[in-house]
Amino acid sequence: MAYATIEDLRGRLDWTLDADEERIAANALEDAADLAAHYGRDWPEDTAPRMVRTLTLKAATRYMRNPDGYVQSRAGDETLAWNDAAGENAGTVYFTAEEQKLLAGLAGRNSGLYSVGVTAWRSVRRPTGAGLVPVDPFGKEFPLYADEVEPW
């Protein structure tokens, strides 16, 4: 499965890829597609949302521009530095936390708070006896609220 092609990636890079870089770019696109399927879902290539292609290219481009994950490099003293913001993903193809949320949203796996109606097992709603809730299978009821006009 590939959500983007080498040609798509070439359009985002400002240099011409040599044979070795083409191999690395193909692997980066494959890794990004695998991660997109993990954080989102395994979309068929022809029905994947355009944003999946965009995010896959974004992750592969980020990796191709900085494969070692450096945040600072100095030639004089040969200083190299990595940032902890990328954590274990420094130097790999990765999606940021925001991109991961976007992929999950595209897949219909939004996290959040939901409300679900709950009823007791084998309970029967009765129009009489306002404020009484069945508590056992023998018909005993518990007064949940007392006023028929303003129950809460």
Results as ranks from 00 to 15, higher is better:
83 N>M: 08
62 R>E: 00
67 P>M: 09
104 A>W: 09
85 A>H: 10
100 Q>G: 05
90 A>C: 09
119 T>R: 13
68 D>C: 06
112 G>M: 06
111 S>A: 14
78 E>H: 02
70 Y>Q: 00
95 F>H: 12
114 Y>G: 10
124 V>N: 10
74 R>I: 02
120 A>Y: 01
119 T>V: 06
62 R>Y: 01
63 Y>G: 08
73 S>V: 05
102 L>P: 02
99 E>Q: 15
67 P>F: 12
114 Y>C: 05
77 D>V: 02
80 L>F: 12
115 S>M: 13
68 D>I: 03
92 T>F: 07
112 G>L: 05
82 W>F: 10
66 N>H: 01
105 G>Q: 13
73 S>P: 00
114 Y>V: 07
59 A>C: 02
119 T>P: 00
71 V>Q: 07
112 G>R: 06
86 A>G: 12
61 T>E: 13
71 V>F: 07
70 Y>K: 10
108 G>N: 02
70 Y>H: 07
115 S>Y: 07
73 S>W: 03
77 D>T: 09
60 A>Q: 08
111 S>V: 11
60 A>H: 06
114 Y>L: 03
95 F>W: 14
69 G>Y: 05
72 Q>H: 11
108 G>W: 01
73 S>N: 01
81 A>H: 06
68 D>S: 02
98 E>D: 14
105 G>D: 13
88 E>K: 10
85 A>G: 03
73 S>A: 07
72 Q>N: 11
75 A>N: 00
122 R>F: 11
119 T>G: 00
64 M>F: 06
58 K>I: 07
72 Q>L: 11
99 E>H: 06
75 A>K: 01
78 E>K: 00
82 W>N: 04
107 A>R: 04
103 L>S: 04
82 W>V: 15
69 G>A: 10
89 N>M: 04
66 N>C: 02
113 L>T: 14
